[in-house]
Design a protein around this nucleic acid. Sequence first.
DNA 1: GCCGTTTTCGGCCCGACTGTTTTCAGTCG
Length: 571
Amino acid sequence: MKNQEITAIFFEIADILEMQNVQWKPRAYRKAAMAIESLSEPIEDVYKKGGKKALEAIPGVGENIAKKIEEIIKTGKLHYFEKLKKSMPIDVEALGAVPGLGPKKTVQLYKKLGIKNLDDLKKAALQHRIRHLPGFGEKTEEEILKGISLAKRAGERMLLGLALPVAKEVKSYLEKSKAVKAAEPAGSLRRRMETIGDIDILVASNKPKTVMDYFTAVPSVRKVLAKGSTKASVWVENNLQVDIRVIKPKQWGSALQYFTGSKQHSIELRKIALKKGLKLSEYGVFKGKRVIASKSEEDVYRALGLPYIEPELRENRGEIEAARHSKLPRLIGYDDIKGDFQMHTTYSDGNNGVEEMANAAKRLGYGFIAITDHVGALAIAHAMSKKTIERQFREIERIQKKFPRLRIFKGMEVDIKKNGQLNAASDVLRKADVVYGSIHHGFKGAERENSNRICKAFENKYIQILGHPTNRKINERNPIALNLDTVFEKAKQNNIALEINAMPNRLDLNDVNSKAAIETGCKLAIGTDAHSTEHLRYIELGIATARRAWAEKKNIINALPLKKLERFLQR
DNA sequence: GCCGTTTTCGGCCCGACTGTTTTCAGTCG
C-alpha cells in the first residue's frame, strides 16, 4: 500500500461522511490525508520504524486514524471503509469529479433520483429530471452535463508529476540487475508531456529472458498483463500500466528514438531517410541491408543529416525544419534554474515555516527564493492581514541573515479582483520585493471580460508576475476564457513575467502557450507554488514545460544572475 | 477525529461566488 492509495481512501471516507452530514470528521480525514500525501517517505517505513506512535506523530493523525493506517498496512483493507461504502453505494469519486457537484448535491441526486454513477447522471440530466429538484435548476443541469465529459477524462491519463517518480523507481530497480545494460523510460514521459497514458521503458540487454523475469517481479507490480520474450506489460499501483521492451545494446539509439516518438516526429524522420535512399526503424538506419547507425540517438540523427533533437522538442512542431537550418533553440537546462518564485508557508496555507523553506532551497543549491503567501480575500488559504505581513517580513529579514548565499525575497500572492484591481493596498504592496497577481475566483467570465481584468491588473505598478495565468487544472477544470495574444502583448509592454506554475495538475502556462508567450517577447517565471518543502522538487516539471516551449535561458527569469533579476523586479 | 500553556472539552481557516432564491445552501479555494 502506497501513501497515495491510503490518501485516496481517507479522502473518500471524508466525502461519504460529509454526505451523511457528519460534523468535523470529514475535515479531520482530509487533513490526515493531505499530511500523508506530502510525506517524504513511504508510510509503511514510518510504521515499521516507530509503530503506531510514529504514525501519531504525523500532524493530523491521532489515535484512531493511526489504528486505521495500521489496519490498512497489515491487511490491505479497512473494515470501516468497506462498511461505509456499503451504506452509500454510489461512485463517490466519479461523481465528485464533476465540477459543481459536491457531497451534498451528490447525496440529493442519489436519494431523490437514485443516481449512482456518471451514466445515471447523464441520463437524468438529458431527461431534464434534475432541474426540478429543490436547490437545482436549469443552469445547474447544464453545468452538470458539461462537467460529465471532464469527469470522464480524469483517470484516463495520469499526470506527469505522478508518473515520473514511478518511472524513476522502476528504472533504478531495473538498473540493479546485472543483465540490464541500460534502462530508460521512453514515450510521452521522456518527452515530458503533461499527462501520460502508460509508461514505456526501454531496456538494453543480451539476456532478455532474465530481464523479463526480473521485471515482472518489481515490488510495486499488482498484476502481470502480458509477458513474452522481449515485451511485457504490468499494472503497478494506481492502475498505472508499465510496458517494457528489451532490445540489444547495439540497437539502443535507434530503439530509444523509435520508442520516444512522437509518432509524427518519427514519421517525418523516416521520410527524410527515404529521400536519402535510407531506411529508419527501431533497429537502425539502413543503407540496403547494412546498418549505418543505431548505437546512439546522436548517431541516428547524424546519419539523417540532422543535429541531435532534445526529446521535449519531438512533437513535429517545427523542430525538424529548425534542425535542418541549424535554428534549434539552446534549451534551458535542468540545472540552469537558480531559484523558485512561488511558495507558501505557515503564514498562509503552507505546511512549513520560512526557515524550513529556506533550508530546503539551500539544499537544492538555490541562489534565491520568493516567499509568496496569500494576501487578499482567500480566506481558506489564511490570507494574511497587513499586520501579519509586517510580522512575516521582519521574520524574513531575520532569517535572511542566516543565509548569506540565498537571497530570500519578501513576496506575496495577491488576488486579482473582478474589476482588475489587486486585493491589497499600495502601502502593503510597496513593501514586497515580489508581487504575484493571481485569479482565484470568478472563472466563468467571458473572454473580453477576463482579458480586461488581467490587463487592468498589469497597470498596477507593483505587480511583477501573473500567477497560473489560465487557471486550468489538468483533468479537473478548463482554462478561463482569455485572449492570450492581448494578455501577452500587454505583459510585454508592462514588463510583467508570466508564470509557469509547476504544480503537477496545473502546469500553467502550458507548453504551447508558453511558446507563444516567448514568441511575443514575454519573460517567463517558474514557480512551484510549493505548500511544503516536498513540493519544491516540482520545479523539474516547470522546467520540462519551458523546454517543451523551446525556452532558452534568456527567456526564463529564474536563470538570471541575481543582479539582473533584481533589476527586472524593479520594473 | 484531532488538538491544546488560552482549553483534556470544546473548539475546529471562512469569504466570495453561483445559482437558487428573495435570504440562503452548496461549492470552491
